[in-house]
Amino acid sequence: MNAGQRTVAMGDSLTIYAVAELRNKLLQELATCRDLVLDMDAVAEVDAAGLQLLVALKHQALFDGCELSLVNHSAELRQALELFGLNSFFGDPQLIPAKE
């Protein structure tokens, strides 16, 4: 059991087509660490299903008492979060973009 921090790089698609697979993968990751960091740099496609997955992940993390943070938000993700008024939902330092 590794109780330390774990960083997972997300793929390019955070959409309805990917959420079923991502759900299983993220559940596994969450079960194996106490501090999950998602690197969102590669996320090029995002939709509401993808955002819903992130919200559900956050809920699960709170439920499990696990830390969750998102880093290196891609422009697409930032745009989507902003549109949905979720800027502060994940409490992440997303105001500092990974790159522009």
């Binding site: 959420v19 969450l30 509401a48 819903q52 997955l53 919200v55 008024g85 939902f89």
Partner: peptide, 19 residues
């Protein structure tokens, strides 16, 4: 814009393809 996120289930219970 306010997203109502309260009724979104935790990941373990979530059907990710249902909205």
């Amino acid at each position: 814009v306010t997203s109502l996120t309260e009724q979104i289930e935790p990941l373990a219970q979530l059907d990710p393809e249902s909205c």
